[in-house]
Design a binder for these strands. Sequence first.
RNA 1: GGAGGGGUGUCUGAGUGGUUUAAAGAACCGGUCUUGAAAACCGGCGUGCCGCAAGGUACCGGGGGUUCGAAUCCCUCCCCCUCCGCCA
Length: 425
Amino acid sequence: MLDIKRIRENFDEVAEGLSRRGAEIALAETARDLDVKRRAIVVQADELKTQRNARSKEIGALKKAGQNTDAVQADVRLIGEQIAALDEELRQTEEALETSMLRIPNVPCKTIPTGPDATANRVVRSWGSTPSFTFKPLDHIALGEKLGLFDLPRGVKITGSGFPLMKGAGSKLQRALVQYMLDMHTEKHGYTELLPPFVVNSASMRGTGQLPKMAEDMYHCEIDDLWLIPTAEVPVTNYHRDEILESKLPIYLTAYTPCFRREAGSAGKDTRGILRVHQFDKVEMVKFVEPETSYDELESLVVNAEAVLQGLGLHYRILELCSGDISFSAAKCYDIELWAPGQQGWLEVSSCSNFEDFQARRLNCKYRDATGKARLVHTLNGSGVALPRLVIAILEQLQQEDGSVLLPEVLRSYMRGMEKLMPMA
RNA sequence: GGAGGGGUGUCUGAGUGGUUUAAAGAACCGGUCUUGAAAACCGGCGUGCCGCAAGGUACCGGGGGUUCGAAUCCCUCCCCCUCCGCCA
């Protein structure tokens, strides 16, 4: 959520930012008008409340003195009725204001490229090189079948399409990757590991912005009004919801969780294999930082995610997303994409974003600055990284002519010494 | 799931309808004193909203109600504790 004061005082700047995104300026205009109305009502209601408080005290004093209070009581009753009417009007105005504020996306950072969609994203850097093969590389589905890493038809039988079932060395590889990433972030990058609930309440979903907009894309348990998390960002960021942080910033948290996404619109393209699924595993990184440092923190967040891929020796590139392609809450975002030789394309495995105070405002998460004043923190998060596509890239980039897949050095201890994934006999 | 007891500021804790603008203590911050520290004393010490400010207003787990007036009474939900039931 944006700061209403920013809309009130710097409307043109907000409007320009929204138009760079392709968002409607009308939303901000509505908010601006409702804010004017709201403040007028507050002034009026507060004045009446001052009167009521004063006159109510008179009644107390009169009663103590044993005097009749009928006249004053009638007055106060009248004031009370006026207040009730104003409060109701205020409630409606605030509700309308809240509704429009929740629909306004974040203002993009000034420095990011302007453009309508992914075509305007900028490649910032790449690492490694495109592997060349003396044979025709297979895609991950063929490799997974030959190596016996997953059994997708049985996942369909047990649950439905998009619920992959990993098996044997495939499930072990997932487990190894989770361990490898968590160990790296906790031991080398200074993150504290959490193992949070995978199911959260509606307040948490609102805190990070999934509700109200994304309700249709999430799994909901109606009887308890609880939601399956679409990303660890939700429980981990809500860790500090409704708090004034007394500990020193920055705070770095990381967590492994499964992620559940209904993604109603995904039928058709990319539905084969484990590229786009309803349940997948991910290691997430979340930062709570001082506003002045958040853009530096974004750079180091990306570097933390890159270290995972560099350790595995995988070819990747970093994109700086343009104004039209960043997510609703983000002010700036880098995507990390892995090269997938089997499909001759780039796969997004991480999205690292600075939300500035956009998330912290709904989250009600503050810290104390040097003067002791409570200020909103800046929040960031990034995948570090998402697993199915990482597995795809490992299989496709590291496949050998004999049909095996050479495991990166760093994974071997986690795989109990295994060096290669071998085809089934 | 059932029965009972609770939820007040950073913490402890008073407050069961009317100067409560929430007592008191502790912690914390600043000051005095001191060579320095401790102690003592003085002052400060929640969050939001409106306002240039002075100030006003709201908040005692959340929501609703009764009343001229609610931390206080009623309803409801959430959470914590104790006991019982169930259980990986």
